[in-house]
């Protein structure tokens, strides 16, 4: 639908910018993380990503059929949603749960609002929230990457070795926060969190792969740097403050940035053009909000990770932000 609406007043953009092109870029940007996930979680990653993509696309096709709308599959947005949803799922999640999540995120998160461009909330995050609320246990069972010999390394404080599962660094940081000690052990995991050799959701474990992907997107100018930078800066600032106050029980801000879904969120989720503000100043407000709420949930809240909720919360206020920072038309403000 959207690709038809390219008629605009001068100055005309010389680059043919289509939804399909943008989405294709995003898929390429996500590719390194996909490779990293397949390397660390092997067959689980491939199965999950394939399931999510296929069922997201299938749901979109079905919804269009039911609503007698033209097929919108070829804008590839369902594929991107599928990949992002898969990236935010734990590797050991059963296939049927992934299908439920995919159906929910496309049908409830996107199509009931009227399809791409009309959704208020990031569809992938809507799907993930539903899965978390429904299958809490499945959504918090983390697998040890296949490259680690589970017998050898574990960061559990009490030295219990679980052959199959492992808590994420953030879960341990939560424990450290409560026991008021032991943040050191988590900080030592920074290296692993950077390469991705650690327990966590599929696509969020490897900071390196995510950064490689986003560099491509920034070079191609598919996304601009405002939102990612705002998210990371505000999260870093928030993390630094708590780290400076109490370095015994809180993990370092760098570890915060590299672990959990923060990078993934900053690069690929918060930058979703549909659910983020349109103006530069709006983007900064949005990004700072996402970063701050994430850290607030991580440090003060009950959950170890808060990316999903912070994105949804800021999505909800995006229309307000857009109202507040109106786009100034070319040629300056309209006079009375």
């Amino acid at each position: 639908m959207l690709k038809n609406i390219t008629v605009s007043s001068a100055p005309h953009v010389s680059k043919p910018l289509s939804t399909r092109g943008v989405m294709l870029d995003v898929i390429i940007g996500l590719a390194p993380a996909m490779l990293a996930a397949s390397y660390y979680f092997r067959i689980h990653a491939i199965v999950l990503i394939a399931t999510c993509v296929v069922s997201c696309a299938g749901t979109e096709w079905l919804c269009n059929l039911i609503r007698k709308k033209s097929n919108s599959l070829d804008d590839l947005s369902a594929v991107v949603t599928g990949i992002i949803l898969a990236f935010s799922l734990p590797p050991a999640l059963p296939v049927w749960a992934a299908i439920i999540g995919s159906v929910f995120c496309i049908a409830i998160g996107k199509m009931v609002f009227g399809g791409l461009g009309a959704n208020i909330f990031n569809p992938a995050m809507v799907g993930r929230t539903f899965l978390t609320a429904s299958f809490g246990m499945l959504m918090t069972t983390w697998m040890v990457p296949a490259t680690i010999d589970a017998e050898v390394r574990t960061i559990a404080a009490d030295n219990t070795v679980d052959a199959r599962t492992q808590a994420t660094p953030l879960a341990y940081s939560k424990q450290a926060l409560k026991a008021r000690t032991g943040a050191e052990a988590v900080n030592e995991q920074l290296g692993a969190a950077f390469t991705g050799e650690i327990g966590g959701c599929l696509g969020e474990t490897s900071a390196l792969a995510l950064i490689a992907g986003v560099v491509y997107l920034l070079i191609r100018r598919t996304i601009n740097f405002h939102i990612p930078l705002a998210v990371l800066l505000s999260a870093f600032a928030f993390g630094s403050v708590t780290y400076l106050i109490d370095s015994e029980s809180s993990i370092s801000p760098l570890t915060h940035l590299c672990s959990g879904g923060l990078l993934m969120c900053a690069f690929f989720i918060a930058t979703d053009p549909v659910t983020a503000p349109l103006t530069r100043r709006g983007m900064w407000v949005f990004g700072i909000g996402v970063g701050a709420i994430t850290m607030l949930i991580r440090i003060v809240g009950e959950y170890p990770e808060g990316v999903m909720y912070s994105v949804l919360l800021m999505n909800a206020v995006t229309p307000l932000i857009d109202r507040f920072y109106k786009r100034i038309p070319a040629g300056g403000k309209a006079s009375g």
């Binding site: 749960a97 439920i100 409830i108 009931v112 539903f130 609320a133 429904s134 299958f135 809490g136 499945l138």
Partner: peptide, 22 residues
């Protein structure tokens, strides 16, 4: 069958009602 806990929460009420209205 694994129960979908979310359906018992308010979100389940809103989603089900919305879909039924549709």
């Amino acid at each position: 069958f694994v129960p979908w806990a979310a359906m018992g929460m308010p979100v389940g009420a809103f989603v089900t009602l919305g879909l039924m209205l549709g």
